[in-house]
Design a binder for these strands. Structure first.
Lengths: 150, 150
DNA sequence: AGATTCCTCTTCCTTGAGGAAGAGATTATG
DNA sequence: CATAATCTCTTCCTCAAGGAAGAGGAATCT
């Protein structure tokens, strides 16, 4: 391995597939629906937002959005808070870190931590530089996939 | 961990969320169900396998598994091939690269390629070393999440 | 060969997520 | 003020994914 390996594209594809596979398996393991996980990721990246905003981003209409929030709230992933300045609105805020999903994902996190601990400080800075850049790229690309774009 | 940013864990979480968010959004954009995407990732990582094996890994019973494969086959992601040596069995093999999902994911891939092209050969070897290790870790951790384990 | 086991596929039924339309409350606008 | 627009939530309906049970073909084992 000097530059990227000859099958760099394949290796990268396998890596992304593994990340998603683990996410799916984790969600399934704690009875979390696909849309629920999708919404959690949106909230994790977008921060607190109203049900309307969440509905737009998930592509759901208002009815299912309400029940989506109900599910997430009941399972302990988010909480409803009154929106300051507009008493019609509600803010959905992700909750600290209690719930089932984190428990299920813990082994993977530990394993990744173990892998990361094997790198030098310089190597780690390369990795985390990439994480930051790639996160932004994925997030922006994902948002461009929304069909609404009023 | 010395060099990674003080909020390394948070940065990493955001990164993983972004990867999954993009995956979800892509699947949704081409009308692919959650289980379908899950199965595709399993096939990508596990290679050709029988419907029985795929059913076990997805946690589905035989009925839904058959229709899952029907959907994937009709959408052009996989193909059914006779299993050598046992004429009862069928092998589900992922197809080269034609289908919708790849088209939708292309922009992200290009963006990631652009990011990667900014690194030196040494840095790239660090990144791809991590990709390989993390992929294995995620895959193994995901497989340990299956409840069946006969 | 005959019986049993294994694998895939078919059929029917159930369940739960999502869409549509409207109610209730609040804010903005004339 | 009164009317319109906005936001969330409720209710009802639809539909597709998943479970259960069984059929049919193929391999394995006396």
């Amino acid at each position: 391995m000097s530059t990227p390996p000859p099958d760099a594209s394949l290796a990268y594809r396998r890596y992304v597939s593994a990340v998603m596979l683990h996410g799916h398996a984790s969600a399934r393991a704690c009875g979390l629906g696909a849309t629920d996980l999708y919404a959690l990721n949106i909230l994790e990246l977008g921060g607190p937002m109203t049900p309307g905003e969440l509905g737009t981003r998930t592509g759901l209409t208002t009815g299912p959005t309400t029940r989506l929030v109900d599910r997430l709230e009941q399972a302990g992933y988010v909480r409803r808070a009154p929106a300051p300045g507009d008493r019609r609105k509600v803010l959905i805020e992700p909750i600290g870190r209690p719930a089932e999903l984190d428990r299920v994902m813990a082994p993977a996190r530990e394993e990744i931590g173990r892998i990361l601990s094997g790198y030098s400080p310089d190597e780690l800075s390369v990795l985390f530089d990439y994480f930051a850049r790639a996160a932004r790229a994925y997030q922006e690309t994902a948002e461009r996939l929304r069909p609404d774009e009023a």
